[in-house]
Design a protein around this nucleic acid. Sequence first.
DNA 1: CGACAAATTGATGGATCTCAAGAAGGGTGG
DNA 2: CCACCCTTCTTGAGATCCATCAATTTGTCG
Lengths: 245, 245
Amino acid sequence: MGQALSEAVDSQCAHCPAHHLAFCAKCTPIELADFENLKYYRRFEPGEVIFWLGEPMGFVATIVSGIATVNQTLPDGRRQMVGLMMPSDFIGDPRRDKAPYDAISATETTLCCIPRRAFQEAMEKSPRVIGQLFEMKRNELDAMQEWMLLLGRKTAREKVASLLLLLVRRQLCTGSRERRGPISVAIELSREEMGDYLGLTTETICRQLSSLRQDGVIASNGVRNLSINSIDRLCAEACEAPESA
Amino acid sequence: MGQALSEAVDSQCAHCPAHHLAFCAKCTPIELADFENLKYYRRFEPGEVIFWLGEPMGFVATIVSGIATVNQTLPDGRRQMVGLMMPSDFIGDPRRDKAPYDAISATETTLCCIPRRAFQEAMEKSPRVIGQLFEMKRNELDAMQEWMLLLGRKTAREKVASLLLLLVRRQLCTGSRERRGPISVAIELSREEMGDYLGLTTETICRQLSSLRQDGVIASNGVRNLSINSIDRLCAEACEAPESA
DNA sequence: CGACAAATTGATGGATCTCAAGAAGGGTGG
DNA sequence: CCACCCTTCTTGAGATCCATCAATTTGTCG
């Protein structure tokens, strides 16, 4: 309950699981200490809204743990996910005072928040932060290009396989688990969220999952946990190049 | 035919139609002179390839005039446009030695090219260039989010209307023409390119254009030139907010 | 004018959405 | 701990939208 000593607080960023990939990855110790003083943690429940479209955006944030989604909607309610943010990803736009989209916590999520104006000033003084943010935006843009190819040209089955592949790869990166044999994947998105990611309805998601199950590509360990029988097979179904390593 | 004096060359950037929105918009005169010395113009014919996917990328470039498209393809040839680049837009990735996509000239296009390695060095020394590129990437990302909403959730008719609206708006920005009455729009993309932008086939593009024509939303002045009878009507068809100004 | 590419229109089939009902899972209170 | 409820997931039947295949027309460039 008592506030930690500044040395202890300072060490937190270095121990942060998101630090080495986040905007602050290349900061000097001094810059890091500045952010230390500005930052505060916030926790969101599944389904909780982080930003509403058009709402004043008081802070920007790095995801420390959990998953958040960024969504665009049409006036009649049709919704498309346009960002799937994972730990170390950056949410919010330092130069904009109103959120240009909805951001929603998909799982239980912890954010490392920094007041927007303060962040903007700090950012503009630090080429390391700008450089890292630029690099991160570049990666995001690359991912979006593949995502657009998926949305525009892939079939429902290919879309579902692609999303599963994304989730598997993420888990392989994080958990560094054995490649041989069936791989168990925790699906941290609801069927509806999967549909919003892929531009499909929940019913189509279900049907394609059932079909992949019937064809032996995946197996089911409960509704939010699947096993992948063959990654290479899944790659083929997703119309993507097989795993390299 | 003779090479211009360095003063005259130096003045070219300042007179460049793309300058005020391009990466070099905020450069100091000295920085600008550096780029002056590095740059060379290159002209591409309609349909000519600027970069192939995977090809060594020797230069980065700003579009001076014309339109270029950036495309992703699946192994079986299905193609999705993921970038529609207009004058002042930036093509290529300074930090990457191989092109991560195909870039194709859609019209007759003039590029202001700069050798990639030299650009990378210049960029990393100049916060003004990084800042402007960051800003441009941010805008590109915003546009891509709306594009993804279109790809994932809009109907064919809405997609076609949205693309027409994009082209109209672009022309209104550039040409600053009267808002009242029918607006004539030059369509600088083939039906196939429109299909690649929208994730549709050329046949569907044709049918939707015919349908919009029959319903009086647009009229035809030849195959590559349409008039928009009502911008507000077109906005409604595109499922977008009406023109504000 | 003639040849070729691009655009248009028609007919058909298939993929995905919509509407609807039932099953499974998760949480709450008795 | 079990029964109940409510949400989420799953499956089915039918309708709709868009892709495919094919034929014709229009436009462009020698």
